[in-house]
Amino acid sequence: MSEPLVRIAAVGKSFGATRVLDGVDLDVNRGEVVTIIGPSGSGKTTLLRCVNALETYDEGSVRVDGVEVGFRDGEAGRRPRRDRELSRIRAATGMVFQLFYLFPHLTAVENVMLGLRKVRRLGKAEARERALHWLDRVGLASRVDALPSQLSGGQQQRVGIARAVAMDPKVLLLDEITSALDPELVGEVLAVVRRLADDGMTMLVVTHEMGFAREVSDQVAFIDNGRIVQHGDPESVLRNPSGDRLRAFLSRVS
């Protein structure tokens, strides 16, 4: 438990003249659930995407289990990593997307199997067995051969979660995974995440579900204009917000 599993230190990023991330520090310990909240455009999704290098960062450091994600050290200072190295690094993290992004040409079980076969290089039978296990865990044992288009939003998102966790990632990144769902489908997806949290999965979560954040998080970070403005345990951040901006944000979302 010495070194945090995810260590984000002084990370900065600009899109042109816009400063999206402005010196962000955030640690996620093994087995912890850390939730990032903040207004849209505050940089929370960008921060999450820096952890698996879907987004590059200009300054600072993002380490997952001790490995710098976006750069490698060379003789001439640090250089952006090549695609092949990034693929290896990304295989250590799992990501679930707001809009699911299931592979529409593959069935549910094939969606989960693809990474197991091609990245983990498991045999077909073993990959299938593991995929079926995880689809069962997310409550979709009866829909394994359905195409994404034949599934509801909530079911698709649960396949998305199974696809990510079946790879046995060190950390799971959840990017507003219930924002695109009809309200009545939110519960089934959150229930799956809650169970993963209980099983000790390390997670970095971007969400607008404040009740959920309060319930599962070990830490909550409030980000605004690319900076973490408030950070602490969920009680202190969500129940007794101190800053004006956080109070204003919380009154808008809940």
Binding site: N52, L54, D83, R84, L86, S87, R88, R90, A91, A92, T93, G94, M95, F97, L99, Y101, L102, F103, L114, G115, K118, V119, R163, A164, M167
Partner: peptide, 17 residues
């Protein structure tokens, strides 16, 4: 959809894969 490339990246597939 560009999300397909992102999802494929996120599970660690290489560019040719």
């Amino acid at each position: 959809h560009h999300g397909q490339m992102e999802a494929a990246r996120a599970i660690g597939l290489t560019f040719p894969q």
